[in-house]
């Protein structure tokens, strides 16, 4: 099995500086108004005091990604645990924008637009020896956001290693933040973006248990094949039946012709 890579975000280290968002936008040459990363903040009243944190909204690179499930052309695909895009395949049908449980993909200039962990246009990871991450991406570097983060809140690498690191971070953080947890270890086949949260997911507006509704699977795996399969079957069955029926019909017409006296063709 191919190695699974991931990005991790440590919200204890994040200083909310927006450097990742800006680096992403510039590095990926996104047109004005488009972005793959937004960093906002949330402030809530907690037991007489205030509690605040930064909130990152960006692709979670779900392993069982709903966007990939519904994409009819394969423009969205999984590669090494990341959800990549082949933009030239995109038909802008918009299914992914509805299917994503995190409301991430969007259509920009008739193409799907979202984080691809800075993999190239063809979405190919080029593994080269690297002490830090175990692989390199575009031009032998890490994703723009990871590379730019000034507080080491963002990391990129093999998912297993990042997950282990995140867990030990959480263990250390628990004394200060009893609700601290790694978000994304198991849901949806395991997320390719691991977040170290300092509180429960809902404090960040994240679903505690993100799910892909089963209707989506039924649609893709049952209704779609049934619709095209049964149509094809009906056409094939009718085609075969036609041969038999045509013969019978010819025979019947001959019978009628024999029974009808010549010249007896008049109406009524």
């Amino acid at each position: 099995m191919a190695v699974r890579y991931a990005i991790s975000i440590d919200l204890d280290r994040c200083i909310g500086c927006q450097a990742c968002a800006v680096a992403c936008q510039t590095g990926n040459e996104l047109p004005a108004g488009d972005s793959f990363i937004t960093v906002s903040d949330t402030v809530q009243s907690r037991g007489g005091g205030l509690w605040g944190s930064f909130v990152h909204h960006r692709c979670f690179h779900c392993d069982a990604a709903a966007c990939v499930t519904v994409c009819p052309t394969g423009a969205l695909a999984k590669q090494n645990g990341l959800t990549v895009i082949e933009p030239e395949k995109c038909t802008a049908c918009g299914y992914c924008t509805d299917a994503c449980p995190f409301d991430v993909p969007h259509i920009r200039d008739n193409r799907v637009s979202k984080c691809t962990a800075c993999l190239g246009a063809r979405g190919r990871i080029v593994p080269v020896p690297d002490a830090r991450a175990g692989l390199l991406l575009r031009d032998g570097q890490e994703p723009w956001c990871v590379e730019t983060c000034p507080s080491q809140a963002l990391r990129f690498g093999e998912r297993e290693r990042l997950l282990a690191e995140a867990k030990s971070r959480v263990a250390a953080l628990r004394s200060r933040y009893p609700n601290a947890a790694v978000y994304g270890e198991t849901p949806l086949g395991g997320l390719g973006l691991l977040m170290i949260l300092l509180d429960r997911p809902d404090a960040y507006g994240l679903p505690a248990k993100p799910v892909v509704p089963s209707t989506l699977t039924v649609w893709q795996d049952v209704v779609q094949p049934a619709a095209s399969g049964l149509s094809a079957l009906a056409a094939a069955a009718m085609g075969l039946m036609f041969i038999v029926a045509r013969r019978q019909h010819a025979r019947e017409k001959a019978e009628i012709a024999e029974e009808t006296p010549v010249g007896g063709q008049d109406h009524e």
């Binding site: 449980p101 209707t215 149509s231």
Partner: peptide, 22 residues
Amino acid sequence: GKGRLGANGLACTAMVHDLAML
């Protein structure tokens, strides 16, 4: 409704569409 249907809405509407077309 593109982009406003949600996963369930998309799946259900599309299933109705597919089956009617069948």
